[in-house]
Design a protein around this nucleic acid. Structure first.
Lengths: 256, 256
DNA sequence: CTCTTGCGTCAATGCTGTTGACATAAGGGG
DNA sequence: CCCCTTATGTCAACAGCATTGACGCAAGAG
């Protein structure tokens, strides 16, 4: 079977039930399906039924289900970062990125659980990586360092967001049981064996909260401390955080 | 069908091929299967074949496959932290905790990926929390702060480890495609639209690596900077908590 | 020795992703 | 305007998945 996934479609044909398929429509329907009935509700057959087409029609739009999952993941990124413009303060911009990603994941917790750990290699992700690395380069980090630190940053953000989303996707009963555990199970321990827990008894219910913001703030503190350039707000460059030509220091051999 | 999973078995019968089934044997065989033939090799049918019994016999021991996965994960936790003793250097101890957790997860990625976002309130976890909070309190943090910061630390460790495990648990094809993406797709971009990515072109394949150690180190740096007690180096421990900003790769020889 | 019943086995159900063959209509070329 | 190419929706089939009800053997109690 030759290339079932063409890029442009001129000869669009309505399905038996009258629907005009499109990549966007499929992704949106998949998101709705997952949101309503959980990630395990996403199957080619069910998606076909929800769209009103034969399941195999989807293979005209996506190479396989993984391809579809990546499209969903990229859509989440796009929605989360929609309208974001990096400002002059790179720390503040990274912080907003983190908060946006988390909010976007929490808006579709069950889809996020499916998509969180993938590299989508699609346009929305590429744009986000461009912005993030650009921010770190504007902070004065040398390119290779900027790449490594961006990876540490975005992986922390993504994996924390995934954790929060996975928790939010739990059925209410189980979620509340998890929270209660910190009150109940951990409150009645032998002080001899568990001195620290006993001393911290009153603060333990806080373990049920999300550590997302604390973790991000700690990470940004460390990044700011390592940054060559001052973290001071820049007055001039509002839109483009960095251009290859006028980066503060370093001659870059990679630039032809 | 009444309770297919009794706790004690007195009437054990050998399988057609002569094997005496047990919960432990099943868990061990499952781990061996995953280790030898990759994460996707774990299915009820294959496990039955590897054990020399009918697949359905497993349902006498585990309620369903998820139950089996949890049993596997429970063993992982115990194995990972087995023999750990916190030392005098709280930063080094937290660092070792992080590395142990990650190693334990990576040893059996599929089980880890499935169980990572769940909190087992079992003995091993309780001991780990006790140790961790105790370490932060020994650093001079006030108890409530110690609890919050420990949460930020352990959540970062767990969610990063989950990310790494999820990646390792991907089918080989998808895993390699994800890695290739940083080489291929990200190499051929419009320099006008993506200046930072273009400048960082040569360093992008590094995005396929794990950010685990970088993230943990950044977090520990921030914790050390916030610690009330002096973070001056202790004479007895060799491991330095803070690493230089631009180390090439983690080639850390064994401790002692 | 007999009887109960735990437990391994068999067969069947209804999912899943995927694909090769087929039918049909869209839309460009003459 | 009509024909022809071919993109695209449909159908049927395959292999593999988890799960379960019925069945029967044999282990161990009495």
């Amino acid at each position: 079977m030759p290339s079932r996934v063409p890029q442009e479609r001129s000869r669009r044909r309505p399905t038996r039930s009258g629907v005009l398929l499109s990549e966007d429509l499929i992704v949106e329907t998949a998101l709705r399906l997952i949101g309503e009935h959980g990630p395990e509700a996403l199957s080619v057959r069910r998606l076909g039924a929800a769209l009103g087409c034969d399941p195999s029609a989807l293979y005209r739009y996506f190479h396989d289900t993984d391809d579809l999952v990546l499209a969903i993941a990229d859509r989440l990124i796009g929605d989360a970062m929609d309208g974001f413009e990096p400002g002059g303060d790179w720390v503040a911009s990274l912080r907003e990125t983190a908060l946006r990603v988390r909010a976007g994941y929490l808006a579709h917790p069950r889809a996020a659980a499916l998509a969180a750990h993938r590299v989508t290699r699609r346009k929305n992700e590429i744009r986000a990586v461009e912005t993030g690395i650009g921010l770190l380069m504007s902070a004065g980090f040398e390119t290779a360092t900027a790449v490594r630190l961006y990876l540490a940053f975005i992986d922390t953000v993504l994996s924390h967001a995934a954790t929060d989303a996975a928790f939010a996707a739990l059925p209410r009963q189980q979620r509340e049981a998890d929270q209660r555990a910190w009150r109940d199970v951990y409150q009645d321990l032998d002080p001899e064996e568990f001195p620290a827990l006993t001393a911290a008894r009153g603060a333990l219910p806080g373990m049920a909260d999300s550590a997302f913001e604390d973790a991000v703030d700690l990470l940004l503190e460390a990044l700011a401390a390592r940054a060559p350039a001052s973290r001071r707000k820049r007055t001039d460059t509002a839109r483009r955080p960095v251009r290859p030509a006028d980066r503060p220091e370093s001659a870059d051999p990679a630039d032809g």
